[in-house]
Computed example of a mutant assay.
Amino acid sequence: MAYDENNIFARILRGEIPCKKVYEDDFALAFHDINPQAPVHVLVIPKGPYVSMADFTAHAPEELVVGFMRAVGKTADELGLVEPGYRTLANAGEHAHQEVPHLHIHIFGGKPLGPMLIKGWEGTI
């Protein structure tokens, strides 16, 4: 999946589309998802053109990688999710149903979330 400079997250970073901001620093922007899947559902995106975690960790400067990961933790803390807990998720590619070609980490919380995957898929770990 190639990076699209006009994807919705790139446009949010450029200020072309508004968002309900939760946290921002030099490395990341966190905002509420417009289609929440939990009582708390926030997206954290890095400030740079990265499609996936693999792309990000291979090409972003080290200070951006570290700053972005810290921003995810700070966002969860500011949302009051450290206790009782939360889930993070980053989809990458077609099989993971990545809809926007910009790395983003979902933070889910606000209720017990249940199992991460639905049981019954073909195969074993």
Rank of each mutant, 00 (worst) to 15 (best):
Gln98Pro: 10
Thr75Trp: 05
Val51Lys: 14
Gly15Ile: 03
Trp121Glu: 14
Val65Gln: 14
Met116Cys: 14
His59Asp: 07
Glu94Thr: 12
Tyr86Ala: 05
Lys74Phe: 01
Lys111Val: 11
Glu99Tyr: 00
Ile105Lys: 01
Ala30Val: 12
Ala71His: 03
Asp77Glu: 13
Pro84Gln: 15
Trp121Ala: 06
Ala10His: 12
Leu103Gly: 06
Ile8Thr: 10
Pro115Gly: 05
His97Pro: 00
Ile17Glu: 15
Ile107Leu: 15
Asp25Met: 09
Asp55Lys: 14
Ala2Arg: 14
Thr57Glu: 13
Phe108Ser: 01
Ala30Pro: 03
Thr57Ser: 09
Glu24Leu: 12
Asn91Trp: 13
Leu113Pro: 04
Phe68Gly: 05
Gly15Cys: 06
His59Arg: 14
Val66Trp: 14
Val72His: 00
Val51Tyr: 02
Gly85Arg: 12
Ile17Trp: 07
Gly110Gln: 14
Arg87Gln: 13
Phe108Asp: 01
Val65Ala: 13
Val66His: 05
Ala28Phe: 08
Val22Ile: 11
His32Glu: 09
Arg70Glu: 11
His95Lys: 15
Gly80His: 02
Leu79Asp: 01
Ala71Ser: 15
Thr57Tyr: 12
Tyr86Asp: 08
His59Glu: 08
Asn6Cys: 04
Met116Val: 11
Gly15Ala: 04
Glu16Val: 08
Val40Phe: 04
Ala58Leu: 14
Ile12Thr: 05
Leu29Tyr: 11
Val82Arg: 02
Ala76Cys: 04
Val82Ile: 09
Lys111Cys: 15
Lys21Pro: 01
Pro36Tyr: 08
Arg87Leu: 08
Ala30Met: 08
Val72Trp: 00
Gly110Arg: 05
Gly109Trp: 02
Val72Gln: 02
Pro101Thr: 09
Pro46Gly: 06
Pro84Met: 15
Asn6Gly: 11
Val44Phe: 00
Val22Gly: 00
Asp55Gly: 10
Tyr3Trp: 10
Leu79Arg: 03
Gly15Asp: 02
His104Glu: 04
Ile107Glu: 03
Met69Ala: 07
Gly85Ile: 07
Val65Lys: 15
Ala28His: 10
His97Tyr: 10
Asp25Pro: 04
His106Trp: 10
Gln37Cys: 07
Ala60Thr: 13
Ala2Phe: 03
Met53Phe: 02
Ile118Cys: 00
Glu94Tyr: 06
Asp4Lys: 03
Leu81Tyr: 12
Val100Phe: 07
Val40Lys: 08
Arg70Ala: 08
Asn91Phe: 05
Gly48Thr: 05
Leu103Asp: 09
Trp121Thr: 10
Gly67Tyr: 10
